[in-house]
Amino acid sequence: MKTYIVFGASKGLGDAFVRGVPQQGDKVWVVARSRPKSLDLEDCIHREWIPADLSDLHSATLVKDKLQNESLDVLIYNVGVWEKEGFEEHYTFDNDEPADISKLIQVNITSAIVCIQALLPHLRKADAGKIILIGSTAGLNNANSSQVSFVASKFAIRGISEALREHTREDGIAVTCINPGELAAEIPYEEGADRALSVYNGTRIPLQDIVSLVKCIVSLSRAACVKEINIPALLDANT
């Protein structure tokens, strides 16, 4: 039996992690602003919702207090907001508002750091704790993206992973950064990978593929550490 905590778990990839990674008898702390539908599942997995707004600096304390003295086997930080209309053709960095930039940095970077810091005592109680941060191929070199703040935040996730890995090495806590390309996040996990492949003709990665990677990482012994995985969509020429 394992205990998980998943940040950003109300929909998309986070919801897929909550549904697809744990096994019967496991417990999952689900961190999200809105109530996740996964709480209604009846699959012998215990899920607890922690309502939290990660744009609030105090959310880390809220999450830590909710866990009390419970140990954690796996922490998955899957949070990433981006610029307004950032993926539209007419988007330009010139129009980004300072307040929006600040919020993006808070959610994508600062919250990751302070939440992980707050939960390290819980992870140290596990036999083979694991921290998995979800980055993006936008945080890799030559990603051809003009979203300055979003790209900066995803580069930062990789940096956090590198330094955190060294910090937790003696604790036996493995830290992994996964950098997916464009995901078929609009296709609910329960509809299956075949539907995602059909809708996007293979140009976007089914959520099931990332879930499979995480399940593999979680299954590894405490002797192993997967440092970083880059997983672009095969048919995306930009990655």
Rank of each mutant, 00 (worst) to 15 (best):
S34G: 14
Y4H: 04
D100E: 14
V81I: 14
K103N: 09
R158I: 14
L57W: 09
Y200D: 07
P22S: 02
F93H: 09
V28Y: 00
W82V: 06
I45W: 03
A16Q: 10
G80T: 08
S102K: 14
P51R: 06
I45S: 01
I229R: 05
Q106C: 07
R124L: 06
I178V: 14
V6D: 00
L13Q: 01
A138R: 09
D53S: 01
D194H: 11
M1A: 07
L39N: 04
V79N: 00
S102R: 13
N230P: 11
R204L: 13
K215G: 13
L213W: 07
I205M: 08
S146M: 08
N238P: 13
G14A: 06
I132R: 08
V199F: 11
H46E: 05
V6Q: 00
I157T: 15
S136G: 12
G12M: 06
W49M: 03
I76N: 01
A118Q: 06
A9M: 03
S212K: 14
A223M: 15
H167F: 15
R35M: 11
Y77T: 13
A193F: 10
V211G: 08
S212H: 12
N238F: 11
A174I: 04
P180L: 05
E190T: 11
Y4G: 02
A143M: 09
V175C: 01
A152T: 15
A16N: 10
V151D: 01
A112T: 15
I5S: 00
A118R: 01
V6E: 00
S136D: 04
K27R: 07
P36V: 00
A163F: 06
C115H: 15
E170A: 15
S55W: 11
A233P: 15
